[in-house]
Design a protein around this nucleic acid. Sequence first.
DNA 1: CCAGGGGTCCTTTTT
DNA 2: GGACCCCTGG
Length: 790
Amino acid sequence: MTVEATSAPYLVGLNPQQRSAVLHTEGPCLILAGAGSGKTKTLVHRIVHLIRGKGVPPSRIVVVTFTNRAADEMRERVQAYAGKEAREVTVSTFHSLGVRILRAHGRRIGLPERFAVYSGPDQLGALRSACAEISISDDRFDLKRILRRISDWKNRRVSPEQAIREVAAARTRGNRADDYAVLAADAYGRYEETLRAAGAVDFDDLLLLPVRLLEEDEEVRRDLWRRWHYLMIDEYQDTNPVQLDLARLLAGQRRNLCVVGDDDQSIYAFRGADVGNILEFERHFPGARVIKLEQNYRSTRRILAAANAVIAGNARRHAKRLHTENPIGAPIDLWEHEDEEAEAEAIANEIATRRLTQKRKWGDFAILYRTNTQSRPLEEALRSRNMPYRVVGGTAFFDRKEVADALAYLRAVAFPKDEIAIRRIINYPARGIGRATVLKVAELAQARRIGFVDALLAAGPADIGAAAHRAVAGFLDLLEDERQKLRAAEAEAAAGAPGMGLPPIARWAEAFLRRTGIEEEIRSDRRNERTADLRVDNIRDVVGSIARFERRVWGQLGGAEGASDVGDDVVATPRAEPGPLDEGWTTRAGVGAAASAPRPLDESRTMPAATAPGPLDETWTPPRLVDALARIALTDLEDRGDDDREDDASIALMTLHSAKGLEFEDVFIVGLEEEILPHARSIEAAADPELPGHGDPLAEERRLFYVGITRARSRLTLSYCRARRKHGGLVPRLPSRYLDDIPADLLNVRSAGTSLTPEESAELRKNFFAQMKAMLAGDEQDAGAQARSG
DNA sequence: CCAGGGGTCCTTTTT
DNA sequence: GGACCCCTGG
């Protein structure tokens, strides 16, 4: 290291390992960052070093994360350290980056310039429609399960044809290829067709299609390599095969690829992540440098010792020894409770006490659990004591029916071909277009081999009856009318920055949604009596996020000059003038040609910092509804205007998965029981090696526990219940196997004082024997799991 | 053919 | 607490 390098301000305060991670900038590099080892800090300093120390133009750097939250944090910290010019650094999630690439080049694979991004409910809708076409119409089947299967294939880059072959092969080998695999393989191709026909892509496509594009199209590759010279990927242990390919393609021949991750924190195998990516990085990228960050700055020695003891139970790991110079800290509490209510009460009381005795803020506390449903008793206990809390993650914002409905209305206007959106709201609120009519239209579409929406337009009174025909015409008129109004709103939005009050597009959306009558529908439904206000508020939030989007777009124009990718990567699209709903768009031919030098490798040296912009250098465009919708689809509720200040003032409740990357002073992990952690499904999957799902499910559950433990800075409280209320009864529970791995001398154990009534105790005993019997019986007959859908 | 009411099932983890 | 199914009444 040179003298000036070691004395550079961005190296101050780094330990030797972190320092070498910062200074190694050329060629592939794997930073194995243990929990709490200052990973983000190291990455940020590395970016600063690239810019300040090596003179790399910030716009040549791209950092890819998994979550928007991680991207925001990274962006903030980079700018805090490197100043304004660092705004030119691209910081993006994998999925946003995918959108960006598809925006710039998607038309090369026949994608419309404006495409809808389907998430959860929309994917289900598309699948339902696809299944109907191949007469799996009898949807006694669990569509979510089929969807998971399809997603799994897409993440592994298995095509529909390959999927069919794969399933057939598994059957001939005598494996119990379950019905769902066969069904899913059949539906897969149709599902893809449905998406394309609706001009939509799903979440998996946002990774898959860019990879395909890059592999097949030299010009796209060149554009990318011209654009980015230094690539960093966070949480690399969670990448799936598609993301590995994307990493390879993005890194190109320069191979200036720096990935950061911790194999011990790989917890996303269920969605296709492959720990192999990080374990075999050196094989995938020969000549890679591996740097370990092994000092933990976060947790007390006791907490770290417990974490190390737990994770030591896993075999397939990178050798790594996490140590700390932190104080020994308080013992780890291990509490036994009678049931989940007692658990919630005890924790609520304890937090209230500790806040006073330890002088903590509400925001210092977090309660972590395995499944979202576990939040309920906790919420009740906290609410009854007026203790402020926030549920992080949970039911995704637009998984909520009313939000999905509102968005479907907006999409039906923005994307005229969007079959799924239209079918969702065609009779909500009821307007006389019932199931039978929809079915007829679908049949018509199939018979004439046209899209559903076209069939809707074409259907005459003879096809669907006079009354239904009138209703359909009214519905279509409504959409067309709103398209006109939207056009006007977007013109207004393009004219100048919004002043006070609701910006134009949001104002239009509000009026439109009011006109649809969703609100009255919600309020008139008795079942919603309690939640009506909340639901209506959720719809307002949709309008609110459009408003925020409009302001943000105009804010960008003020802040940065010329082409830049500040913050929001979904916003700008390179396109010429045409109005929001015009078909087709013009590309800037010629620019790309000028930039396509024959030897991409040399570009970093020969190319001046400021070059003519290519397709990926997005120019500013005024706000449009389609872009707002894309952003909403990708950011979910993280964007819902909750101030960070609230984080300080409330207890955090979240799943162990959501907790990754966060840290808290005082952490509670609840429900540490067999069949919760490890989850029953994982236990099942581990017992049945032919089931899909890669890797070792029980090892992953263990890592999940490890992630939870390592969130804690100074205090950790673990708990489990002796019984749990399920289906109205009281079911006995066993403590999690992973608890056995924590050395007893780290623990402060407290058992449940019994508070059960005699009747409950009797029931418990009864259920205990019943469960034992069931378990024994379950061992005998292995298949079983399918059970009773016949 | 449509709307609304009442019953029944199930609930891993997420971009 | 929901999503979904079936049934009944207009």
